[in-house]
Design a protein around this nucleic acid. Structure first.
Length: 566
RNA sequence: CGGGGUAUGGCGCAGCCUGGUAGCGCACCUGCUUUGGGAGCAGGGGGUCGUAGGUUCGAAUCCUGCUGCCCCGACCA
């Protein structure tokens, strides 16, 4: 591609409302342009990255036995009503009505549509297993789109759905997909980690997320130093090893005016945060509210809390009125002593003795509180986020926390959808069996952003070769003034094109500094500079995007730098 | 959804407090000079100052409504 015939649109200035580096660089490099909140155009330079990621995903999906199709972006409401998700999915589902007053939604995911296809198309166990996939634009009406294409409303996703006669077959495909996903992210060239995850609203049994490791990631991941355990913090089991000490103190009430937070409490009473507990009231499934107890320094894991039978789904914190009704005080003075509502405590909180908590009287806290003696033994459940240094749930090593960007997620759905949508198939004996399903997603556009998040420097993006918009750039110095430079650059361009290199020929009549800065911002991994200086010796200058210095090489060695031959 | 901020040329901003009819940098166009790390000089084009209303002789500026966008929050015990 000749730069003069392409569209390059770079900017020196960082857009004011872009927060994270990938968003800033995508805008500055002219990869994307914003149309409206959470809606982005992929400009020619950016689209090349998307196409390359798609190609890798497609190849690995095909290799793993996937079969590509494409489904509509707009879905009839009936299908979603049939699965029950028309009501369950909530406001993220963009609904619309056509001229005949029929209701539709813009597909945020395609379980309903594919299940409908499967129940019509798959009529014999002999056709199983089947793994359909598509690469397509999705829409989710996020409450708060941010970080550019990292969390946009419209985005490109590869979604695959597998159908099986048996659970064993599903497990096999799940493993195959795991392998395929690793192959994808290996090829894309990113540092990533597969982790155990909660399956969330989609439902189903087991799921695994693929995260690109990056400080700016929205997810916290826990891994073990002792073995290969890795899980999203949402999912990672907190192990309580503490044993309760004997009660040493009497329970006393102390005045704590204006103390509403754990931080204020530890300062006011000059105690360690690990002697305190937090009491959180949430709406209950059978009672108006339920009390959840965790140690003062721990954080409630909302996913774990939501999984408790006693807790209303979705998890909803009690409002001031509910709190007043249950404990006759404000939120800052809550404690478990004397409560008549269900009390569920995290393992570590239940193992405490002589602890401090709110007195359920505004401006008062209780010290020296002990389970059993001062209040009933609580129901014990895992309620908190794991923290750095926790023992690994596998019993080997301890937990470390890193941050990641979720770029892939694979689920075992089981028969959730096939049951509600009646997708059954006769087995060898002619008995109808609900299909077992799996689903597997990769955020194509998010992967591009994650790649930048992980690979950039002060000058701009540093694309991994596999997904760079162009693998190499030829930068001729003052080509307009030098026939020899022009001839040599043209010749090199032809050689590279003929060898199948995805090369950009920067034939724009620009000063060298401008060309270099542009290409470094855009992040082209390999640069070949053709100039009068070296041309007499049949040489040119090569520089890798990550390297600080250029090297002088023979023109005939240029292709070798890219690992290709003519 | 709650709170905060913001809206001025394609982009980034100043002007607003103290009302007098719009300016800077980048980008763009023309010319000359320059030419291996985002050139210099000269000239030029482009803005109903988000929108609707109000106050005023006069509104980018003051007031009100609306809308867009951004940030924070939705973990507080």
């Amino acid at each position: 591609m000749r730069a003069s015939q392409f569209h390059i649109s770079t900017s020196k200035e960082t857009p004011a409302d872009a927060e994270i580096v990938s968003h800033q660089l995508m805008l500055r490099a002219g990869l994307i342009r914003r149309l409206a909140s959470g809606l982005y155009s992929w400009m020619p330079m950016g689209l090349r990255v998307i196409r390359k990621i798609e190609a890798i995903v497609r190849e690995e999906m095909d290799r793993a036995g996937g079969v590509e199709l494409i489904m509509p972006a707009i879905h009839p409401a009936e299908l979603w009503q049939e699965s029950g998700r028309w009501e369950k999915y909530g406001p993220e589902l963009l609904r619309l009505t056509d001229r005949h007053d029929r209701e539709y939604c813009v597909g945020p995911t395609h379980e309903e549509v594919i299940t409908d296809i499967a129940r019509r198309e798959l009529r014999s166990y002999r056709q199983m297993p089947m793994n359909f996939y598509q690469i397509q634009t999705k829409f989710r009406d996020e409450i708060r789109p941010r970080f550019g294409v990292m969390r946009s409303r419209e985005f490109i996703m590869k979604d695959a759905y597998s159908f099986h006669l048996s659970e064993e077959s599903l497990l096999q495909t799940f493993d195959d997909m795991h392998t395929a996903y690793c192959a994808v992210f290996d090829r894309v060239g990113l540092e990533y980690r597969p982790v155990e995850a909660d399956s969330g609203s989609i439902g189903g049994a087991k799921s695994r997320e693929f995260h690109v490791l990056a400080e700016s990631g929205e997810d916290a991941l826990a891994y073990s130093t002792g073995d290969d355990f890795a899980a999203n913090v949402e999912k990672a089991e907190a192990i309580s090893t503490a044993t309760r000490g004997a009660a040493k103190s009497e329970m006393v009430s102390v005045d704590t005016p204006k103390v509403h937070t754990i931080d204020q409490l530890t300062k006011a009473l000059k105690i360690d945060v690990t002697q305190t507990i937090k009491t959180l009231l949430v709406k209950g499934a059978d009672t108006p509210v339920v009390a959840l107890i965790i140690r003062g320094d721990h954080q409630l894991n909302e996913i774990k809390a939501e999984h408790l039978d006693a807790v209303l789904t979705p998890l909803t914190f009690a409002d001031a009125k509910d709190i007043k009704a249950a404990a006759n005080c404000d939120a800052g003075s809550l404690g478990p002593v004397g409560l008549t509502i269900p009390v569920i405590a995290d393992g570590d909180a239940a193992a405490m003795s002589d602890f401090v908590c709110g007195a359920n009287v505004n401006g008062k806290h209780l010290q020296g509180v002990n389970w059993e003696r001062d209040l009933p033994e609580p129901v014990i459940a895992d309620l908190r986020n794991v923290v750095d240094g926790d023992p690994s749930p596998t019993g080997k090593g301890e937990i470390k926390i890193v941050r990641g960007i979720e770029v892939g997620h694979i689920f075992q759905l089981g028969t959730t959808y096939s049951e509600t949508m009646k997708a059954a198939i006769p087995d060898e004996n002619g008995d109808m069996q609900n299909m077992h399903m799996g689903c597997y997603g990769i955020g194509i556009t998010r992967t591009a952003a994650a790649a930048i998040e992980q690979n950039n420097d002060g000058k701009g993006i540093i694309w991994p070769d596999a997904i760079a918009p162009f693998t190499a750039v030829i930068s001729p110095i003052h080509m307009a003034k030098s026939e020899t430079v022009k001839a040599a650059a043209e010749a090199l361009y032809k050689t590279m094109k003929d060898a199948g290199v995805d090369v950009l020929f920067d034939d724009r009549p620009l000063r060298p500094g401008v060309m270099f800065a542009d290409m470094e911002l855009i992040g082209i991994p390999h640069r070949f500079v053709v100039s009068e200086k070296h041309i007499a010796n049949d040489q040119l200058e090569y520089k890798g995007r990550r390297e600080s210095d250029a090297e002088i090489i023979s023109i005939s060695d240029a292709l070798g730098k890219l690992g290709v031959s003519a």
